[in-house]
């Protein structure tokens, strides 16, 4: 168990499922980014970020995920976002990044 915003990292074979939580704003985004990049260093084949418990995200949080996406693409790793709340999904729609990220309604769908 790590400290927020990443609250847990679970492994399903070579897939890292990362649970994020809380409010991802300018205060938390740098921490989130570093925690996610640390998971990437463990060389998963796939990463799923479960956003179900993220109650708020602004452009700082989105930027952290874009940075992660860039790194996963360079390393041939698949990245998916799962279970965003309506409010969190909205910021991806506003920034049109909903067509750039793989976003699934549930973690199960992301794993399928």
């Amino acid at each position: 168990m790590s400290k927020a915003p990443v609250t847990d990292i679970r492994w399903n074979d070579k897939t890292a499922i990362v649970d994020a939580a809380g409010e991802i704003d300018l205060h938390q985004s740098a921490v989130l980014q570093q925690q996610l990049l640390d998971v990437l260093d463990q060389k998963p084949d796939r990463m799923i970020i479960n956003l179900a418990n993220v109650s708020y995200m602004d452009s700082s949080g989105v930027a952290s995920l874009v940075k992660l996406l860039s790194r996963t693409r360079k390393n041939g790793i698949s990245l998916a976002l799962a279970a965003p709340t309506k409010k969190v999904r909205a910021i991806f729609e506003i920034t049109r990044l909903d067509s750039v990220f793989e976003i699934f309604d549930t973690e199960q769908e992301a794993l399928a």
């Binding site: 452009s59 930027a63 874009v66 996406l69 506003i94 920034t95 990044l97």
Partner: peptide, 10 residues
């Protein structure tokens, strides 16, 4: 698609 610069758009 890159980090940053989204605030004004939002």
């Amino acid at each position: 698609v890159r980090p940053g610069g989204l605030g004004v758009h939002i």
